[in-house]
Design a protein around this nucleic acid. Structure first.
Lengths: 147, 147
DNA sequence: CCTAGAATGTTATAATGTAACAATTAAAAT
DNA sequence: ATTTTAATTGTTACATTATAACATTCTAGG
């Protein structure tokens, strides 16, 4: 996401947060911006590096707390298999993501397959299971990396 | 899995390994047994505790290597969202698992929904993605814990 | 037996994540 | 406006998960 897109995104996100009574503080906004600008998922410690100010990085809880907030607001997703975070492009309607993760180039693609959603619902129903957080991470090689 | 089932399972697994030219050494068998006997997923360090002999636990690489082997053979699955391992009940035909994970009681249920598989195939095809390892972990509350 | 490759042992350290408490800041109530 | 309450941030210390690198031992095959 480039600077222009980011500015637009942040504007939308701020509205969203206000309407939820959630505070997008400067620190949280900084973490979100780092994630949205990045082409690749970022780990907590990469984010800490990104937050460095004059040879001083914040302590880990700082970034973990911001990440927790951003996840709660549906502004970012955690990729469990990478211990890393990606931005969510459609925070306006909450959803759990489905991710294609290229193990070659590291690119991550969020998809939204409704058939897959239906299957998940079916599993829920069959098993009497109350699904709260689906983790769908598809590791493999993206189209470009197969050539 | 009780002792009787375990014995039977190990027998099958040994045949499987032999046919693959893979060696199920005593250490690997011990790790597999610990996992199969457990009702809950076990972390690497819990397994190390389980391997303790007279106040002496092996060093971490020991168990991580065994786990790597067992995963390669399709004898266990790693649950990324829990950093823990569960046994595979059907190692005879290799498959990636789909897991229902109860965040209340910790129970894990491996399911095999073919609709879901189909959806994954569809995503693959649509995106030209070569899926190598699907991570499907459904976190929520199991039927019993909802009462 | 000998030897090459596989498996294991050992040490050290990297990477990820959290608990607990103190200090500060912002929001709500009087 | 001031107080007071709750949310946020800072800080220290440490817990948990995981791997690199190299030494040693074992085992299957020649």
């Amino acid at each position: 996401m480039n600077q222009k897109e980011l500015t637009q995104h942040l504007k939308q996100v701020k509205t969203l947060c206000t309407s939820q009574g959630a505070r997008l503080t400067p620190q949280r906004e900084q973490v979100l911006s780092l994630i949205m600008r990045s082409k690749k998922p970022l780990t907590a410690y990469e984010l800490l590096e990104g937050m460095r100010q004059e040879d001083k990085t914040p302590a880990p809880p700082t970034v973990y707390r911001a990440l927790e907030f951003l996840q709660e607001q549906g502004l970012i997703h955690k990729l469990e298999s990478l211990h890393a975070f990606v931005g969510c492009n459609h925070p306006e309607h909450p959803h759990a993501g489905q991710f294609l993760i290229c193990t070659d180039c590291g690119e991550v693609n969020e998809v939204c397959n409704h058939e897959l959603d239906k299957s998940l619902n079916a599993v829920e129903k069959n098993q009497g299971f109350n699904l709260q957080r689906p983790v769908i991470e598809l590791l493999g090689r993206c189209a470009s990396c197969q050539k």
